[in-house]
Amino acid sequence: MATADATAPHLDRSLPDSWTQITRVAQYELLNFARSRRFIVLLGITGAIAALFTVLIAHYRPESLLVGPIAFYGTFWGVAIAFLVDLAAVFFAGDAISGEFQNKTGYFLFGNPVRRSSIYLGKATAAFVAGLLVILIYAAVAVGNGWYYLGPPPMVFLESVAFSVLYLLSVIGVTLLFSSLFKSGAMSILVSLLLFLFAFAVIEDVIVALVHIEPWFMITYGSAIITNVINASYPAHIVHSHPFGLAGPVTTTYTATIPEGVAIMLTYAIVGAVLGYLLFRRQDFT
């Protein structure tokens, strides 16, 4: 083996500040995503949903959708975006932390002079950028179709895109919490997926149906503003109805207001990410 020159000078290096290290962690995490199969799978799912809508609309020209931009974006965008955001956040953040423990890649990274907070923020940033890319790709296809049939998109669509970006942040926050909680990547991904795809929605329905209170603490309740905003008029906050006639029981339907929805999603994003970091900071590599 060639041995190093005994007189070789020390490298002229200077430790970058933490912000630079965060961007470096994010940059290489994105490179990792770009090379991984899950990124291709997610792009495939996004492309398949977009293509399905595009082909079906081109072929059947459904009047209910092409009647105006609100109906068009309410369906093309509203039906799929929350699902895509859930998938993107869980795919990219699900094993961001747990994978470092499970796969032992943490031993390659964490022994360097980088704070755990920088690693955490770098990974969160990468998951956000990758998720944002998915949102923008799908939005671009929706706008392309909408423009072709109906002209430029309405303002409410742009608001909806902004809310879906906020939703992405909140799902990433919660997913990072699970990623820090478990030392198995598969477990953190599975738990996050089950929660966002099924459990939260079921819990919300049960609470409204049985307890009759406004589910202001549920993320699915808050994230509904993504689709609610694409309406000719925003739905009323609380609606009492008598579905079984005036003599029957009163049913109450709750719809999150926009400030409420934003607050719920922000809270999930911040609380999830902070709790996740506190757990991650305390974890030992054993």
Binding site: S18, Y28, K104, Y107, F108, R115
Partner: peptide, 18 residues
């Protein structure tokens, strides 16, 4: 940690590389 490990290289366990 940043300052402490600045002049330290380490090989702990058998790390996996990405």
């Amino acid at each position: 940690k940043r300052r402490a490990l600045e002049e330290c290289g380490s090989l702990i366990e058998t790390p996996e590389i990405y």
